[in-house]
Lab assay of single mutants.
Amino acid sequence: RGFLEKAAVKKMAKAIMADPNKADEVYKKWADKGYTLTQMSNFLKSKTAGKYDRVYNGYVIHLD
């Protein structure tokens, strides 16, 4: 289950990176699912340092 969630989160993160207008909708879905910042950090780990920082930081702001 965790692997599928991670894959889904990364897919949506890539969608945000391609079209930032989708961010609020995606952040709301993640918040509704109760994803914590720790979970998001783990889901968005990448071999490329900083690749998903913008998405993660946007989610931090959304939760605030």
Rank of each mutant, 00 (worst) to 15 (best):
N57S: 10
D64S: 14
K47P: 07
D53M: 07
Y35M: 05
V60D: 03
P20V: 06
E5I: 13
R54Q: 11
K47Q: 09
L44Q: 00
I61H: 11
K22V: 12
L63F: 04
V9F: 04
K10N: 04
A8Y: 14
T36C: 04
E5A: 08
K28V: 06
G58C: 04
L44K: 01
N42L: 11
A7I: 15
L4E: 11
K6F: 11
M40P: 00
F3K: 15
P20N: 06
Y56A: 01
Q39C: 07
A15C: 14
V55N: 00
G2V: 08
T48Y: 10
Y56G: 02
I61D: 13
L4R: 15
Y59N: 00
T48F: 07
R54A: 12
D24G: 11
L63M: 06
K28T: 08
A31E: 07
A7M: 15
A49C: 13
N42Y: 14
K10L: 15
F3H: 14
L37H: 04
P20W: 12
A8G: 13
H62D: 01
K22E: 06
M40H: 01
A23T: 05
K47W: 05
K33D: 06
V55K: 02
E25D: 12
N42I: 13
D24W: 09
Q39D: 13
V60F: 05
A15T: 11
V55L: 02
A13I: 03
K14W: 08
N42A: 12
K11G: 07
Q39E: 09
R1L: 15
E25A: 11
M12H: 07
F43M: 13
K45F: 09
R54Y: 12
I61M: 11
V55T: 01
K11H: 08
V60P: 01
W30H: 00
V55C: 03
K22A: 08
H62L: 04
E5D: 09
K47N: 13
N21C: 15
K6V: 08
G58T: 02
K6D: 05
L37K: 10
Y52C: 03
Q39A: 08
R54L: 11
G2A: 10
D24S: 13
A8W: 12
F3E: 15
T38Q: 14
D19K: 05
I16Q: 02
V26S: 04
I61C: 15
R1A: 15
W30I: 00
D19S: 05
A15G: 06
Q39W: 04
D24E: 12
Y56K: 03
K45C: 15
A31S: 11
Y56C: 04
K33G: 05
K11R: 12
A23S: 08
N57D: 14
D19M: 06
A23L: 03
G58L: 03
K33A: 15
Y27M: 03
G2P: 15
V26D: 01
L4G: 13
V60E: 10
S46R: 05
K51C: 07
W30L: 02
N42M: 13
S41Y: 10
A31P: 00
Y27E: 00
K6R: 14
V55Q: 03
K14P: 00
A7R: 14
A7L: 15
K45A: 10
S46D: 15
N57G: 09
F43C: 06
R54E: 13
A8K: 13
K33S: 07
G2L: 14
A31Q: 13
K10C: 13
K33I: 10
E5T: 09
G2F: 15
Y52I: 02
R54W: 12
V60A: 12
M12Q: 15
Y27Q: 00
G50V: 04
E25L: 05
A49W: 07
A7K: 15
A23P: 01
K10W: 09
G58I: 01
M17P: 00
D64C: 15
F43P: 00
S41K: 13
K22I: 14
N21H: 11
M40C: 02
I16F: 01
V26K: 02
M40K: 00
S46M: 05
S41Q: 14
D24Y: 11
L4I: 12
Y27T: 01
M12T: 04
T48C: 13
I16N: 01
G34V: 02
P20D: 05
A7E: 08
K51D: 05
K10F: 09
M17N: 05
T36Y: 02
L4V: 11
N57M: 12
K11N: 10
G34Y: 03
K47D: 12
D19A: 06
K6C: 14
G2N: 14
V55S: 00
I61T: 11
K51I: 10
W30S: 00
A7H: 09
A8H: 13
A23V: 03
K28A: 09
H62V: 04
A18Q: 11
Y59P: 00
E5G: 09
K6T: 11
D32A: 12
I61G: 07
A18G: 05
K14N: 11
L4S: 09
L63G: 02
T48N: 11
S41L: 10
M40W: 05
D53R: 05
F43I: 10
K10E: 08
A8F: 08
N21T: 13
K28R: 11
A15N: 07
A18N: 08
K14Y: 07
V26Y: 08
F43W: 13
A7Q: 14
K28D: 06
W30F: 03
G34K: 06
K45W: 08
A31N: 05
Y52M: 03
T38I: 14
I16E: 01
T48R: 10
G50L: 05
K10M: 13
A49G: 12
K28Q: 13
K14Q: 09
D64T: 14
W30K: 00
A13T: 02
W30C: 03
L44P: 01
A13K: 01
K10H: 06
F3G: 14
D24N: 12
L44T: 00
G50E: 06
A13W: 03
K45I: 10
G2M: 08
D24C: 14
A49M: 11
V60Q: 12
K14G: 06
Y27S: 00
I61A: 13
R1Y: 13
E5N: 08
M40Y: 01
K33Y: 06
K29Y: 13
A8L: 12
Y59A: 02
A18I: 09
G34E: 04
A23H: 05
K6Y: 12
K47V: 07
T48Q: 12
E25M: 10
N21Q: 12
S46L: 05
T36W: 03
A7F: 12
F3D: 15
D53K: 07
M17K: 04
D32S: 11
L63R: 04
D53G: 04
V26C: 07
D32C: 13
T48D: 12
G34T: 03
K14S: 09
K6P: 05
R54S: 15
W30D: 00
E25V: 09
M40S: 00
V9M: 03
L37V: 08
S46I: 07
D19L: 04
